[in-house]
């Protein structure tokens, strides 16, 4: 019991201190996760809308691939990128390995199928009358997609939240392609792993508390936006 209270006390002291190292880690975590989510959403949501609206042979297979992608182990996504980014790899000339850029790319790879899959699900659940009306409109496929995406926007917001939650909480991909370099590529999750490896359980728990707080704030903001949007419409 004494040990547990010690660790928890240390954790809260660590958070309360909010030292420069923690601030730096938090800032990088937010920037990387936000950019990765943005890229994943910008590519994934339109793809999801298209997938949800279209009827073609093999759509089921594409859907299955996307759903599998939603569950891809982050460390596997990291490894795939690592192999590409190795100096002698296909993208080695970018010299992007162990940079925040590589971390953004790896997490975007994780965010994309989630953004696409959740959006496609929301579009597929569109009322049959809405789908019928939509296909009767005299608009381009892109215009149709825009109307459909707007119609299911609470679902799109859920896709954003799910993608952000996944990337900010994952450690496998950022550790492999980021390398957890102090002051360069260290984020909350990789810092937690490192502190835990060192048996600095208080600091590890403190970082975990910060991570959960960030995830909670982002989700509250999105839920609030959803509810406000629902009330307005």
């Amino acid at each position: 019991m004494g040990f547990l209270t010690d660790v928890v006390g240390e954790a809260f002291r660590y958070v309360a201190d909010f030292g420069p190292e923690l601030r730096e880690i938090l800032a990088l975590t937010l920037v990387v996760a936000a950019l990765a989510t943005a890229i994943g959403v910008v590519l994934g949501v339109p793809f999801g809308v298209w997938l949800g609206l279209s009827r073609f042979r093999g759509r089921g297979i594409v859907m299955a691939i996307v759903n599998t992608g939603m569950g891809i182990p982050p460390v596997l996504a990291g490894l795939l990128l690592l192999i590409l980014l190795w100096n002698d790899g296909i993208l080695g000339s970018w010299e992007a390995l162990f940079t925040p850029g590589a971390m953004v790319a790896a997490q975007a790879l994780l965010a994309f199928p989630i953004a696409a899959g959740v959006t496609a699900g929301a579009v597929r659940n569109l009322n049959i009358d809405a789908r019928e009306q939509l296909s009767a409109f005299n608009v381009s496929p892109a215009g149709r997609g825009w109307i459909a995406g707007r119609e299911v926007w609470p679902g799109v917001a859920a896709a954003v939240a799910a993608a952000f939650g996944r990337v900010i909480a994952e450690v496998g991909a950022v550790l492999v392609v980021g390398g957890n370099i102090e002051g360069e590529t260290r984020v909350l999750t990789t810092a937690i792993v490192q502190e835990a490896r060192q048996s600095n359980l208080g600091a590890a728990l403190g970082l975990g508390i910060v991570l959960l707080a960030v995830a909670l704030i982002v989700n509250l903001a999105l839920t609030w936006a959803q509810m406000r949007g629902e009330a307005r419409v």
């Binding site: 992007a96 162990f98 925040p100 490192q194 490896r197 060192q198």
Partner: peptide, 25 residues
């Protein structure tokens, strides 16, 4: 942010890989 991220991929830095314990400590 974009500038920051792009700047970090500078090619003039030295990359060192080292044993976990020596780095974590």
């Amino acid at each position: 942010t974009v500038v920051l991220v792009a700047g970090c991929s500078g090619s003039d830095r030295i990359l060192v890989g080292a044993g976990t314990t020596t780095v974590d400590s």
